[in-house]
């Protein structure tokens, strides 16, 4: 190692100190500088090209397509229809139903993917490490299972005539329940499956945040005579709030998206459109009825809507995270 050279000229990085005639040096440095300026972009090229080709350019294209009428066939003409697609979509009861369903998915996910994990994290902080590790390993399993497998397995468990869950309930005296065929239940069933996949993950995130809380704060409060509930309310919850916000942010922004696989495999949006959320509606417009314009217009609405929602949640999160100190 020639570490000793370091003290000679610590600022020297790229320019080797070789003697050059001044003019040549200038030319060399300019060419070199250009090359040097180019280098970072070359390192970025694969990633940036991928994002431009597969995300940003298509986003612009979806925007343009949303003003056109087209049926996805290369030979068919594209007609410019202005705002007609948007107007038609807003007139469509199905769109409002899907929007409402998206809302129910999000609201239904929060107790499962945020509230329950919070309770579990708070209740299990005192468990001995060995059993805690075992529980961790077990509750994390749903997270890594392929979504299609999760859908298939739950379809089997919930099957009205032979599913073990339904048989168990019938043993308790209920009639067979059409968890996936009853329009009033199907959406909640899918929400439950989506949440089932997330419980372990959310619990671990919150447990980690909870374990990172300085115990001396809790100890001090305990010495001051604070009850267990007071400690949770006044110390733990405020300190956990940034993590909670992050989790809520993720669930709200991605929750409806995750349920796509379950909807497609289990109900295909039915019965009577009761499980169709906005993501699934995009899919139905685009590849079900081949109306590119409608699909793109709803894509734009979705993108703008969720963008605004994300901005609002980030602003809220920035406010809450202030507690962190």
């Amino acid at each position: 190692m020639r570490l000793g050279h370091l003290h000679l000229d610590p600022t020297m990085t790229d320019f080797a100190a070789e003697p050059h005639p001044p003019r040549m040096l200038r030319r060399m440095t300019r060419a070199r500088r250009f090359r040097r300026q180019l280098v970072p972009y070359l390192y970025l090229l694969p990633a940036v090209a991928c994002f431009v080709i597969w995300i940003y350019e298509p986003l612009a294209q979806a925007f343009v397509l949303s003003f056109q009428q087209w049926n996805l066939l290369p030979t068919a003409p594209k007609t410019w229809v202005g705002l007609d697609n948007y107007r038609n979509i807003f007139d469509l009861p199905k769109f409002w139903q899907a929007l409402g369903n998206t809302w129910y998915y999000l609201v239904g996910l929060l107790p499962l993917a945020v509230l329950l994990p919070l309770v579990i994290a708070l209740f299990t902080q005192d468990l001995p490490p060995r059993s805690r590790n075992l529980y961790r390993a077990l509750i994390f399993v749903p997270m890594i299972v392929p979504p299609v497998v999760a859908a298939a397995v739950w379809r089997w468990l919930l099957d009205p005539s032979h599913g073990i869950l339904n048989l168990g309930l019938q043993g308790l005296g209920t009639k067979p329940i059409g968890f996936l065929s009853d329009p009033d239940l199907a959406l909640w069933t899918i929400t439950f499956i989506t949440g089932w996949k997330l419980i372990g993950f959310a619990t671990l995130i919150l447990s980690a945040a909870n374990a990172a809380i300085d115990e001396s704060l809790v100890e001090a409060a305990r010495l001051d005579g604070a009850s267990k509930w007071e400690i949770i309310r006044d110390i733990r919850l405020p300190l956990l709030s940034p993590t909670l916000m992050l989790l809520i942010l993720m669930v709200v922004l991605l929750g409806a998206q995750w349920s796509f696989s379950y909807i497609h495999v289990l109900t295909e949006g039915g019965p009577l459109g009761s499980t169709t959320n906005i993501y699934y509606l995009l899919w139905q417009f685009g590849f079900g009825s081949l109306s590119v314009g409608w699909s793109s217009a709803s894509a734009v609405i979705l993108f703008v809507g969720f963008g605004l929602l994300a901005a609002a949640l980030f602003a809220l999160k920035a406010k809450v995270t202030f507690h962190d100190d």
């Binding site: 940036v48 986003l59 996805l72 894509a299 734009v300 979705l302 969720f306």
Partner: peptide, 18 residues
């Protein structure tokens, strides 16, 4: 920023152009 913001674009939004 452009890299970080890609997660805001769901695949369903760009599926037809893709």
């Amino acid at each position: 920023g452009a890299v970080a913001l890609t997660w805001l674009v769901p695949l369903q939004v760009v599926m037809i152009p893709n």
